[in-house]
Amino acid sequence: MGHGTYSHAAHAAIIADRATSGAEVFSQRRCHPLMHPHGLAMREARDSAAHPASLAIVFALDVTGSMGDIPHTLATRELPTFMALLGSCGVADPQLLFMAIGDATADQAPLQLGQFESTAELMDQWLTWSYLEGGGGGSGAESYELAFYMVARHTDLDCLVKRGKKGYLFITGDELPYPAVSRQQVAALVGERLDADIPIAEAIAAAAESYHLFFLIPDLKRRAGCERAWRRRLGDHVICMEAAADACAVAAAIVALTEGACADLGAVAATLRDGALPAERVSAVVRAIGPYAALLDPASTVDHAPASASHKAPGWFRRMFA
Rank of each mutant, 00 (worst) to 15 (best):
L132V: 03
L55C: 03
S54A: 07
C262Q: 13
E227H: 13
L257A: 03
A207Y: 14
D297L: 01
E133Q: 04
A252H: 01
I70Y: 02
F26N: 01
I217C: 04
A203G: 09
A279M: 08
L176V: 01
M241H: 03
G68C: 02
A247D: 14
R18C: 13
S139K: 10
K221I: 13
L169Y: 04
F26Q: 01
D124I: 09
R233C: 08
M83Q: 14
H212R: 15
H154G: 04
F148N: 05
Y131I: 03
A201D: 15
M150G: 09
V282P: 07
G22M: 06
L127N: 10
V250T: 15
L160D: 00
L296T: 00
D156W: 08
C89S: 12
M67Q: 13
D103V: 05
E280R: 13
V181W: 14
E78C: 10
G260T: 12
R319P: 00
L79A: 00
S182Y: 00
E24A: 15
V25M: 11
A249I: 03
G266A: 15
L61V: 00
Y149C: 00
T301W: 10
E142F: 02
G39Q: 02
Y149R: 05
E44V: 15
C226G: 05
I171S: 13
G138R: 01
Y149Q: 02
R153E: 12
A188L: 12
A84I: 06
E133M: 00
L213D: 08
A205T: 03
S300W: 00
A284R: 09
A56I: 09
A322K: 06
A307E: 13
A261N: 14
A245E: 15
F317I: 09
F321W: 12
Q115I: 10
H72Q: 10
F59I: 14
G65Y: 05
I171A: 10
L216A: 07
D17H: 15
F215A: 04
E202Y: 07
A100G: 15
P33K: 04
S7F: 10
V282S: 08
D158Q: 03
Y144K: 03
A245W: 11
I101E: 06
T76A: 09
M99Y: 09
H304A: 14
G22A: 03
D297K: 06
E121G: 08
G102P: 09
R287I: 05
A92Y: 08
A141I: 03
P80W: 11
L113Q: 07
M1C: 10
A322H: 10
M83C: 11
